[in-house]
């Protein structure tokens, strides 16, 4: 733990990767610590709203990001997750599941992870029909009936992916209507394979070795859906448990100002892990670049970069 980095970036999704590209161009001595590369972007289906690409898949865009990062020969340690951050005078100590690091500044860009449904059978059938990654596991359910839980863009994304390869796709939505982008809702509603259950709650997931069905409740009536796949897309939880020393909002997002400064000097945050309005790939990228520029100014004004 002798080396002191100018900057450590936690996470390598759109925000973390963009921050790393800016840091490389500023020639900072920095390190990226991450559990994966691409983050949630790599798990997205079709992307049609990232400027410059009329159409690109999540994995392809994540690959482009990675290639951009790799072109600078950036030091990345992976898979490694942060456990705690501590301010030590002017330095910041980052404790991970593998080691401890010291840096003069820190950017947290650790994103979010899928929220669990917390119903009977969910844990038991995880990877046995229950999945949180339609992009990864969707093709395994080709020709099988499936259910998507949720009503927002992630749920619609999963539906769009499954409705072309599955004979029956149910959407179980707790709200009175779907809340995603109108373009996606139109596409979903036009498919004869899709059946939408609004105002519905999941009671339990059941089966034998693998999932055989799902029980739901709609207006106090119980229905059993005969499905082999359950895709859970009900929102996301910020990966910020390790950052309890920073001010967070009631959803556990790290509070940042418009310069990406957190409540602790020298620690910045960017992307979906923060309270930035709207969680979008293009926004996360912009936030990552902004966080790095602010970190650079912080390092310069504190004369941290002078040898």
């Amino acid at each position: 733990m002798n080396k002191v980095y100018d900057l450590i970036i936690l996470g390598a999704g759109p925000a973390g990767i963009t921050a790393s590209v800016y840091a490389a161009r500023k020639k900072l001595a920095f390190l990226v610590i991450t559990v994966d590369v691409g983050g949630q972007a790599a798990l997205s289906g079709d992307i049609e709203n990232y400027t410059g690409y009329q159409f690109i898949t999540g994995p392809d865009l994540a690959l482009k990001f990675q290639e951009h990062m790799d072109s600078f020969g950036i030091e990345v340690t992976m898979p490694e997750g942060a456990r705690e951050i501590v301010k030590l005078g002017q330095l910041i100590k980052t404790v991970t599941d593998k080691a401890e690091y010291l840096s003069k500044s820190l950017i947290i860009a650790t994103g979010k992870h899928p929220r669990q449904l917390n119903v009977e059978g969910e844990k038991e059938y995880k990877n046995k029909g229950v999945t949180y990654c339609a992009t990864c596991d969707g093709p395994l359910f080709r020709g099988k009936k499936v259910v998507i839980i949720g009503g927002g863009n992630s749920a619609l994304d999963a539906t769009l992916q499954m409705m072309n390869i599955s004979p029956e796709v149910h959407i179980v939505n707790i709200a009175s209507q779907l809340t995603g982008d109108p373009v996606m809702i139109e596409k979903v509603k036009s498919s004869p394979a899709v059946k939408i259950w609004n105002n519905s709650e999941v009671e339990k997931i059941y089966g034998d070795t693998f999932v055989q069905g799902l029980q739901i409740k709609q207006h106090d009536k119980i229905f059993n859906l005969d499905v082999e796949g359950v895709f859970i897309e009900i929102g996301l939880i910020p990966n910020a448990e390790f950052a309890s020393c920073l001010e967070q909002n009631k959803w556990g997002e790290i509070m940042v100002d418009c310069y990406n400064k957190t409540s602790v000097e020298g620690i910045f945050a960017a992307g979906d892990v923060t309270n930035v309005p709207e969680k979008q790939i293009i926004i996360a990228c912009g936030e990552g670049s902004k966080a790095c520029l602010t970190a650079f100014k912080y390092l310069s004004t504190h004369r941290f970069l002078e040898k």
């Binding site: 691409g38 790599a42 798990l43 690959l63 992009t135 093709p139």
Partner: peptide
Amino acid sequence: STPTCPYCKMAKDYISSKGVSYQNIDVSS
């Protein structure tokens, strides 16, 4: 693996980087 799964790609890249060859089985097709 499936062609769209990022962790599959990471695993394949990692094993390749070790100079070892593998048989890829695309379960989506």
